[in-house]
């Protein structure tokens, strides 16, 4: 089965993309993920200055998913420029993920990474556990989304993807604001929450930041609904993320309206080769059901 697809003019060998925040700290790990079948990879988000992030525990797994409050640890634009060199040699497109506390910081980060060989820039306006960024800074409103997207597209020729929060009340409105501001695609969704897990013997929340973003299977039905809503609201393509573990999950996300699929937490449950596994399961399902391409699958649940 041929799983080739394209996203904003970027050719992908398959639609399964490494989501930002999982494994994407180094060029060599990105290379490993590509070797394990990812059609594209997204780096861990980069801010202007280096950040240490929150105290451990930062990532835990509970019965129905993962919860994290890493707090955007990253080596800043200076570290990123040293780390992410020669990306064209990796064999699959690499997407940058950039963060800022306001529009001008986003601009500066976009500019600083301009010389690297990224194929697109993702801007998450949706992190639920880092003060100053994402939902905790109110970046998930249609107004802020519009302002930040406008600022970033002025500084780059690359396609800009906007990553949205599942807790936003009218996610379709935010997607529309992003599209109107010139975004090339919507990435949906970021982790949900924040949530909290308390260890009753310690009488303390487990995560160092006490609360964190929920991902994995617990997020899937919410993510599917968000992508479904966004598909009704915009024409630009959607990268569907949230609890995708299997080929069937990926097809479900496509039927909700996603053109491509992001995978993160599933690395924990199925190993780094989960990308290959999802691709072969998608192929199998498509073969059994008489599909030769994704036409007829994307958005099939609408109408």
């Amino acid at each position: 089965m041929n799983l080739e697809t394209s996203l904003c003019g970027i050719k992908l060998a398959n639609p399964v993309i490494l989501a930002s925040g999982i494994l994407g700290v180094s060029r060599s790990l990105l290379s490993e993920v590509i070797r394990n079948g990812a059609g594209a990879v997204t780096i861990k988000s980069i801010s202007l200055e280096a950040r240490e992030g929150h105290k451990n525990p930062t990532v835990i797994a509970f019965d129905a998913g993962l919860m994290n409050a890493v707090g955007y640890s990253n080596p800043g634009t200076a570290g990123a420029k040293k780390e992410f060199t020669g990306l064209k040699g990796l064999g699959a497109p690499v997407f940058a993920s950039i963060i800022g506390q306001d529009a001008s910081e986003f601009e500066k980060v976009a500019e600083a990474l301009g010389g690297l060989e990224f194929s697109a820039i993702e801007i998450p306006l949706s992190c639920p556990h880092t003060p100053g960024f994402g939902t905790l800074a109110g970046q998930d409103t249609p107004e802020k989304t519009h302002e930040i997207v406008r600022a970033v597209i002025k500084k780059t020729k690359l396609p800009v993807f906007v990553k949205l929060s599942p807790i936003t009340r009218n996610i379709g409105d935010v997607a529309r604001a992003a599209e109107k501001a010139g975004a090339s695609a919507i990435t949906a969704v970021n982790t949900m929450g924040p949530g909290m897990i308390i260890n009753i013997d310690a009488k303390k929340p487990v995560l160092g930041f006490r609360m964190g973003g929920v991902s994995g299977p617990a997020l899937k039905p919410v993510a599917i609904r968000c992508v479904y809503d966004i598909y009704e609201s915009v024409k630009i393509p959607i990268i569907g993320i949230g609890g995708i573990m299997t080929g069937r999950d990926a097809i479900e996300m496509m039927m909700a309206g996603a053109k491509a699929i992001g995978v993160g937490s599933a690395v924990h449950y199925r190993g780094m080769d989960v990308f290959k596994k999802i691709c072969s399961e998608m192929s199998e399902w498509m073969y059994e059901n008489g599909y030769e391409s994704f036409d007829g699958i994307i958005g099939a649940a609408h109408g």
């Binding site: 925040g21 999982i22 494994l23 994407g24 700290v25 180094s26 060599s28 790990l29 290379s31 490993e32 861990k44 451990n56 930062t58 990532v59 835990i60 797994a61 993962l66 994290n68 890493v70 640890s73 993160g264 937490s265 690395v267 924990h268 780094m272």
Partner: peptide
């Protein structure tokens, strides 16, 4: 290390966790 179970990538050394 952060997660300890192979998802965050923090402890990587030349592509190995």
């Amino acid at each position: 290390m952060k997660c300890g179970f192979g998802v965050c990538g923090q402890c990587e050394a030349d592509g190995l966790r």
